[in-house]
């Protein structure tokens, strides 16, 4: 039997022909990285290959590493295998990886979303034979509202809080979600303040992306100064002592998980905005359709349910592979936010 182009071993997704890994979860010699979240760009590889805009991001996170930056669609060949990176639309500088060998094409999505968020390079479908896809939100219960509407709600919420003399605190991962929020907050309402983790990451990407001004909260930032303004902070700041200085304040979280009433209630957050950087049910299905693929491998999320649907209802050759990317419903903060 022919060896598959990509296999899943105990270290990551492996291309034997090229001796290259993609988003490996254990240290390897050569690794292609889809994006800067901690579960995809891990520490300890000898050589990293990623999109050029992701280089400063992973350097900020991982320190001095040996890394090569690539452009979108730029091909590079290793032992007759041709690789190229294509926008995944998940967060800034997030890629899909296209792998071609002897006419056979595989694509690994990493994490992706199909909606244009106005910041991350927009997802581009890539034709392939085998499509390796995430399905974090691979259930028909997940249907995103267009982001204009969500941001209208977020800005209205901020304005109302301001009228009531309260500070708005909005939680989102410090890489990706935070910048997307910054980009669409209405600065005619007030000023944007940031938590250190958000500020640091935002500074790293400012040279490549147009973002509004932000003010880092320091020990000297007074309560009066912040009042009525908005604070963007990582979810881990919720319930911390850091947050108490903003009283009176109102909290909100922006995440796909906010679809579920239970998710918001158990975290004791005042308001939940459904805003995700992953594809929703329809997004996943339309992406699959656009690739023209025959085989599908689901890697993380509601993998079993989603691949069963693909098999039984749509007739694809679909299966699940176990990976160590954030499984099913990881509501714990990604490591990246705890580094600061």
């Amino acid at each position: 039997m022919k060896q598959p182009l990509l296999v899943f071993n105990d270290k990551g997704i492996y291309c034997e022909q090229a001796n290259v890994y993609i988003d490996a979860w254990r240290p390897v010699d050569k690794c292609i990285i889809t994006h800067g979240h901690a579960d995809h760009s891990r520490w300890g590889h000898k050589q990293y290959i990623t999109h050029k805009n992701n280089v400063p991001i992973i350097k900020h996170r991982l320190g001095e590493i040996s890394v090569t930056g690539k452009d979108w669609n730029e091909t590079f060949t290793i032992n007759s295998v041709t690789f190229s990176l294509h926008p995944a639309g998940h967060i800034i500088a997030s890629s899909q990886v296209r792998v071609e060998y002897k006419g056979e094409v595989w694509v690994f999505t990493g994490d992706f979303k199909t909606e244009d968020d106005g910041l991350a390079e927009v997802y581009q479908p890539v034709k392939c034979h085998t499509f390796i896809t995430e399905c974090t939100f691979g259930l028909p219960a997940f249907k995103w509202t267009p982001q204009e509407e969500v941001f209208r709600d977020i800005n209205n919420w901020w304005a109302t809080n301001k009228e009531e003399g309260k500070t708005s605190i909005l939680f989102g991962y410090s890489l990706g979600k935070a910048q997307r929020l910054l980009k669409h907050l209405d600065t005619s309402i007030g000023k944007i303040y940031t938590h250190g983790a958000v500020e640091n990451m935002t500074e790293v990407v400012r040279p490549y992306y147009d973002l509004p001004p932000t003010t880092l909260i320091t020990r000297d930032t007074s309560k009066e100064e912040i009042k009525g303004n908005i604070v963007v902070a990582p979810p881990s700041a919720h319930g911390s002592t850091w947050i108490r200085r903003f009283v009176p304040y109102v909290t909100a979280s922006a995440s796909g998980w906010m679809t579920f009433r239970g998710a918001r209630r158990r975290r004791a957050i005042d308001r939940g905005f459904v805003l995700s950087d992953h594809a929703d049910w329809d997004g996943l299905l339309s992406a699959i359709d656009a690739t023209g693929c025959e085989k599908i491998i689901t890697t993380h999320g509601y993998t079993d349910i989603f691949s069963r649907y693909l098999r039984e209802e749509l007739g694809y050759d679909a299966r699940t592979e176990k990976t160590q990317y954030e499984e099913e419903n990881s509501e714990t903060e990604k490591k990246i936010d705890n580094e600061d």
């Binding site: 259930l139 028909p140 219960a141 579920f260 009433r261 239970g262």
Partner: peptide
């Protein structure tokens, strides 16, 4: 909704309501 019943059941287990 045009989804199979088993998928509804799976979704219900996860949504919890």
């Amino acid at each position: 909704s045009g989804i199979p019943l088993w998928l509804f059941e799976e979704s219900y287990h996860i949504v919890g309501d």
